[in-house]
Amino acid sequence: MSLTEAKTATAIRPAVRRRGRSGRAAHSRLSRRRRRAGILLSLPALALVVALIGIPVGQAVYYSMTQWNGITATWIGPSVYTALFKDPIFWRVVENNALLLLAVPFAIGIPLVIAALLNEHVRGWRFFRSVYFLPTAISWVVIGMFAQRFFAATGVLNNLLSHVGFGASATDMLAGEHSALVALAITFIWSMVGTNTIIFLTGMATLDPTLTEAARVDGLSRTQIFFRVTLPLLTRFIQFSFVITVISAFSALFSLIFVMTSGGPGFGTTTLEFFIYQAGFQQVQFGTAALYGVVLFVIMAIAGLVQLRLIKPDDGGGW
């Protein structure tokens, strides 16, 4: 009742909370129902994910250390990993993934510029926005179908080149190992335009307009404002799109490769994810497929952990 009591109470517990949201006393009675409802409602999602993703991950790790054809598995052990790192084919495949990473700066930089253009809100910008976002709705299969025609010997690209007088340099880009990978990378960059432009445009919309206005009053040119004010403020969005782009480059291009090049010529466009398919379906070495799968998973998990840090639940608002 006394003030001193009250004082100590606040002194010891400086922040007496008005409401406890997180967690309740373990054995309280009224919250039991709420807890039971919570467990019940979250169970289906958990079951689905554990059964169809969690367990197979464990199996993949196990089978990666076996020789497996889908029916019988012979245990080999962790030595498969040391063997893998000595395997020149593995490094050839990883090289393709590494080369694909070179496309990432373009897949981010071009959308960044496009978003900045859209953000000027010139007449018709909504229409342009719809057009630029359109590739997000198109399947890689369809994109690959066109890309194959585009880069072929008698395709659109060479046609275009001969029209402007470079007819002599006509080549079938999909016929050379490296040029095929370049063609794949260009196609990849084109189809990432939609997603990344969306991310950057959203980012730019969240910026406080008074900041750029202040910079304008301070006498900075538009380019200066873009590089000195807008870009630094977009860091979080750029990191985010970087992660998305890397994840897509490593794990979303199966269909594109399947349609465009089937991994060829040679190992020219065989990335990790595509080699998994080849090992499993063409050579029926499910163990090797699982082994490459684990490597891919580890790379993705690292990217994913970065991503989870970037999409903290609390940042998700903005409805």
């Binding site: 949201r21 997180s22 967690g23 373990a26 709420r34 807890r35 919570g38 467990i39 979250s42 999602a45 958990l46 994910v49 554990v50 993703i53 969690g54 367990i55 197979p56 991950v57 199996q59 993949a60 089978y63 497996w68 889908g70 490593f250 794990s251 199966f254 990790l272 994810e273 998994i276 398919y277 499993g280 499910f286 497929a289 699982a290 799968g293 684990v294 891919l296 998973f297 993705m300 998990a301 990217a303 994913g304 952990l305 991503q307 989870l308």
Partner: peptide, 26 residues
């Protein structure tokens, strides 16, 4: 929310990181 619901949430969401190719044969 219940005790451990945060962990369960994290578990479900972290499945995002698993590419299907990695587990396709199992």
């Amino acid at each position: 929310r219940y005790r451990g619901s945060g962990m369960v949430f994290l578990l479900v969401v972290s499945a995002l990181m698993v590419p299907l190719q990695s587990i396709i044969f199992p």
